[in-house]
Write a protein that binds this DNA or RNA. Sequence first.
DNA 1: AAGCCGTGGGC
DNA 2: TGCCCAAGGCT
Length: 363
Amino acid sequence: MRVDSSAPYNHARRLLDWYDVNARTLPWRSPPGTPPPDPYRVWLSEIMLQQTTVASVKGYFELFITRWPTVAALAAAEDADVMQAWAGLGYYARARNLLACARSVVADHGGRFPDTEAGLRKLPGIGPYTAAAVAAIAFGAHATVADGNVERVVARLYAVETPMPAAKPTLHALAAELTPTQRCGDYAQAMMDLGATICTPRSPDCPACPVAAGCAALKLQTPTRFPVKAAKVARPTRQGTIYWLRAGDTVLVTQRPPRGLLGGMRALPSDEWATVRPALAPPADATWQLLPGSVRHVFTHFELELVVMAATLNDGRSVALPAGATWVALAEIDRIGLPTVFAKAARHALAHLNTDRVDEKAA
DNA sequence: AAGCCGTGGGC
DNA sequence: TGCCCAAGGCT
């Protein structure tokens, strides 16, 4: 994974040489080798560009800069005006944070953006990426930007096999090694331009890449294999049994263990949910009837197929209840805060025992 | 610390 | 069509 010690220098030099010729011209950018843009412009563009394409941002950026040319002007704007101007760009928390940040810069920093990563990082809406980007691009700080472009470029340069997102710390560390001490802002933008125009996700233009000679993924002839993504694991199906135990017009309700899946929530008596249905004893000695059909529910990491067994006791007091279990009136069952999976099971039971329920209520 | 948050474009 | 993706941050 580690390359020889001269590689970082060569990488940065080749990339900057490429950027000097191929830098994209963008409204918030100054040409390579020229003094950096107004930090306000850099910051505004970086906020807008979060998870948003350059093409989408351009028009909004021009509109904002024209209407609010300085951070002080933006800070003084009406909330509704800014939100309206942002409309259509998406991720509207960014707009709220944009205003909060502008006002903090004016109120707490004398109208000037902090010039360090740490200082920027404290402002609303500025996370690790944006702090590094503003520090490097607007202030020339020796900061390493690590956005999706950089992660992809570095994953390919080093053919990092670790799947995302677990690979992020490794990729960020490698990106930091590659970062030069000079022209940090141009370098940051060069990496992102490379990722956006050459080292693209689906069809990278490797013959045009200035650092192809040092690219491990290209050497493997599989550049698009990187960054490796975690395989989307097919959700396994687990099976379980719910025990619908009636006594008079009440039903037995239990409580989940305090931690883990549905932790601390009310529940219906159940066996464990496993890949193979365990044959556990029902919670009471009674005549159990397997209801037709089943209940399906999808959790984050598995899908559950439940069957429901039902029984009716003449006297609920004859049963030793598990800790936390109580008898709950049938009429209350959908109002006690059952997680959806149990609510489904209850509905299933009630549907199949509808005749009984009606009879009970009539009696 | 996973889930959530908007939208437009490419294939 | 549906899915993936795009200069992430917040909770």
